[in-house]
Computed example of a mutant assay.
Amino acid sequence: MAYKDLDTFFDPDLKLPIRGKLYTVPAPGAPEAARLRKQVVAEGVPPVEQVGEALKILGAVEDEAGVWLGGVYDEMVADNIPWPMIFHAGRTAILHYGFTPDMAESHWALAQLGRLVDLEKATEFLAQIKPKT
């Protein structure tokens, strides 16, 4: 069996649906992916203080005036996507490329869970459940 050229059927880019549109976050090269993996393992998902990482993965570059421009970030801004959604997309892309696509998908769907559920009470409840033996 001969292998087909991977480029003919495999899309490495991340497609994120927001308000009925698919935004494409291009896959980083190997050195950037390695840097992201180290960061995610050491620090987890970037907190709000690390906005630059989320913008960088979305293709934005900070200019001399401190303004971020470029990439899919510009597309989202032009489409009036609110900041929390843009930041969520960036954090998801960091997890997708820096950890696993499965973890990124869970983050995409469940990131707001902490606002909907008292996670401390849920954790305490789960700790009390004893497995069946």
Rank of each mutant, 00 (worst) to 15 (best):
I57M: 03
G71L: 07
Y97I: 04
E62P: 02
V61W: 03
A89S: 12
E32N: 00
A30P: 13
V77A: 12
R91Q: 15
A104H: 13
D118T: 09
L69H: 14
R35D: 08
Q39K: 09
G44T: 13
G70H: 00
V48G: 08
E32T: 02
D118Y: 07
A104Y: 12
E75R: 01
P28Y: 03
L126Y: 05
E75F: 00
Y73W: 03
D7H: 03
L22M: 05
K4R: 12
M103Y: 09
V25Y: 02
L6G: 02
H107I: 11
R35I: 02
E105A: 15
F9H: 08
G29M: 13
A78H: 09
N80V: 03
T92H: 08
L113A: 15
P17I: 04
L14T: 10
A34R: 13
E120I: 05
G52D: 12
R37L: 11
A127N: 10
P82D: 14
A65I: 00
E120F: 00
M1V: 12
L126S: 07
E124Q: 10
A2V: 10
T24A: 05
K38F: 00
T92A: 12
P28R: 02
P26C: 04
D79F: 06
P84R: 02
K121P: 02
T133E: 01
G71Q: 08
H96G: 09
Y23K: 02
E75N: 06
D102F: 10
E64T: 05
P84S: 07
V51A: 11
D11C: 09
V67C: 01
K38Q: 07
K21I: 12
P82C: 06
Q50R: 11
E49G: 09
L6N: 07
V25I: 10
Q39I: 06
T123I: 03
Y73P: 06
D5S: 03
W83A: 11
L95S: 09
A60Q: 01
R19Q: 14
H96C: 13
P84T: 04
T100F: 11
D11W: 05
T133S: 02
F99A: 15
L58D: 04
L116V: 04
A2T: 13
P84N: 08
V51W: 07
T92W: 00
M1R: 04
E64Y: 00
P26K: 02
E64H: 05
L14W: 08
L16F: 06
K38C: 00
P17W: 00
